[in-house]
Every structure is written in C-alpha cells, then in structure tokens.
C-alpha cells in the first residue's frame, strides 16, 4: 500500500504565560491509502494538536516549529496559505468532536454544504440555475449517504433542529462532499450515546470501504480502536509511545503506558478483581526535561530511564518508546 500521509518529527509549540508548551514533540506517523489509523491518548496527549497541525489549523500562540508533513507527495508545510486552503476540505477533511459548535448555527445545513462545493468543486456548471440544482442534488445525495431521512426537507433546516447523532452525521456529510482522500475524525462519537455511536462508526467504516478513503480516527476509547482501526498509535504527553497493528498492540501491548491504559479499563469480565489504575497524573508539559515522560508513573522505571528515549523496534511493524521492552515481551 502506498503512503498517503507522512509526518516526520513534527513539533508544535504553544507560547503560554507559564512557558513554552511542546504539545506535540517529535511525532512521526504514516497513513497508507485506504487504511484506518487509530490515534489514542488521554486529554492533553497531543492527539488533536497533531492533526490540527497537519490541517494547518494551529493558530497563534501556537505554531508548528519543526518537522515535515507530506501528503500525496506534496510538502504541506511549504505551501502558501491559499494552496493549503485548496487542499483542506477537498483532499483532507476533518470532523470536529463537538458538532454543535463546529456547525454554523445561523446557516441552514444546505447552505453549509454548498459552501464546501462552491469553494472546491471546479466541475460545477457555471450557469446559475444548473449550478444551484447540481449543488442541491449533490447535497441530497450526501445526506442520503450518511443516512439522514427526508434529505430534501432537512437541507432547509438549521443545526439546532437536529439531534446530536444527526449533527455528527451532517458534519461527516460535509466532510465527505468533495470525496477527500483522507478523513480525520476527531472524537466523532465521544458526545454520543452508545447505540448512536455504533451507527456513526459503522457509517464511517462503510464509506471508507466504498470510497477507498483513508481515515484517522482520534479517540480515547480503545474499544472503538479495537473494532474499527487497522493500525493504532498511542500518544502520551505530546509523544507517540507505541505504534503498530491494532490486534497486536491491544492484544500484547509493549509500552508500560499502553499496558496501564488497558489494565485500567473496567470490564464486566473483571468483576470482583481489582483494577490496576496507573498511579499519578500526566506531567505538566511546560519545561519537560528530555527524558522518558512516563517514568514517574511507570512500574518498570529505573534510574537508567532518565534519558531521552527514541522509538525502538518492538516486533514486526511495531515500535515503542521504552528502554525496558525486553521486560514486556
């Protein structure tokens, strides 16, 4: 499979009053064509900032300080703003966690879908009437694709007239309007109930298979990753700590953080057994020394861990950022 997105040594920083925060520190990743990559991490791990950086959406006081981002053979960091704008929404689309704040409350759903096509679709007819009906037909088709009943009527409605699950579907429909090669879905189901979550995730997997698109699924839910992603990348405090095929990473995690995360998930099967939570809290990202960031919470930590740790091979197609890998195999 050929590589669609390749990020190397990405560093995104935010200048805050407390000091410089390296929200993303040396992240490298690849997404192949047609693949679904799961990105897992807790709040503040840098998973959303990584992909906002890819989209060129990091705003002051934040900035992408280092690294390369190659998409479909082009260097995104080297592009002028208008070139980036042409790619964003057409070739790479992103859906946000909170559909209610991401959609414009003052525009109808139809108007918001039309915006994307007007901005990106050069194949639209230029005659006004034909153009308008082409946009409408396409919008109806997209709403139908994401399973919204009576799309013709729904196009004239405003976001507040839809339920949470429906709004998330509308955002997906807008993101898919221009048939992007890559869909970045940032916590698409976190705000949704489980029966609705299942519908939305199935929809994304389904459309991915049908359109041959790549998907990055950002989530904090390892169960979602287990069921929907080919590969998974675990992030902690701004770094990737483990990466590999989903079954292997979840079935036999190598990094102590991934292991701790899996052990802290309460499961009905573990009824009556104590869960083993990871002790302590995520370190403050301001002025972190260049050493293993997990060592203060790590059961395997030793004096030797207080050094900068690179990603190390952890099996075929797998890597982990840990010096104690021989103890976790």
């Amino acid at each position: 499979m050929s590589v669609l997105l390749e990020v190397t040594n990405l560093r995104t920083e935010f200048a805050t009053r407390a000091g410089l925060v390296r929200a993303v520190d040396g992240v490298s990743l690849r997404v192949a064509r047609g693949e679904c990559l799961g990105v897992v991490g807790e709040s503040g791990s840098g998973k959303s900032v990584t992909f906002s950086s890819v989209m060129g959406l990091v705003r002051s006081p934040g900035r992408v300080a280092a690294g390369t981002i190659h998409f479909d053979g082009r260097d995104l960091r080297g592009l002028a703003p208008e070139e980036m704008r042409a790619i964003r929404g057409r070739d790479i689309a992103m859906t946000m966690q909170d559909a209610l704040t991401a959609l414009n409350p003052a525009l109808t759903v139809g108007e918001q879908m039309a915006e994307v096509m007007i901005a990106h679709d050069d194949t639209l007819p230029s005659a006004r009437g034909a153009r308008r009906s082409a946009i409408r037909d396409r919008s109806v088709e997209m709403l139908g694709l994401v399973g919204i009943p009576a799309p013709e009527t729904r196009l004239r409605q405003y976001p507040h007239e839809f339920s949470g699950g429906m709004r998330q579907r509308i955002m997906i429909a807008i993101a898919l309007t221009c048939r992007p090669q890559l869909l970045i879905a940032d916590e698409p189901t976190t705000a949704l109930d489980v029966t609705i979550q299942a519908q939305v995730l199935e929809l994304i997997s389904d459309i991915r298979a049908r359109l041959g698109m790549s998907v990055v699924l950002i989530t904090h839910d390892l169960g979602v990753v287990a069921e929907h992603c080919d590969r998974v990348m675990v992030m902690y405090a701004g770094q990737v700590v483990e990466e590999g095929p989903t079954d292997q990473v979840i079935g036999a995690p190598r990094h102590p953080y991934t292991r701790g995360l899996l052990a802290s998930i309460p499961r009905p099967a573990l009824r009556g057994q104590p869960i083993r939570p990871i002790v302590g809290q995520v370190p403050d990202l301001v002025g972190l020394p260049p050493q293993c960031r997990f060592h203060s919470r790590c059961p395997l930590a030793r004096q030797g861990c207080l050094v900068q740790v690179p990603m190390l091979p952890a099996g075929p197609g797998r890597q982990a950022r840990c010096l104690r890998l021989e103890e976790t195999s």
Partner: peptide, 21 residues
C-alpha cells in the same frame, strides 16, 4: 451489542444495529 469491545474480534461479534434516535 453496541459497546465496542476490546478482545472481541470485529467479524465475530453479533451486531444489532438500532435505527434512529
């Protein structure tokens, strides 16, 4: 059946999809 589960293989899991809200 809607709960995504770790350890359950995707293809093996019986699925009931509720329609609507």
């Amino acid at each position: 059946s809607a709960v995504p589960e770790i350890g359950a293989r995707r293809d093996r899991k019986a699925r009931v999809r509720l329609q609507g809200d």
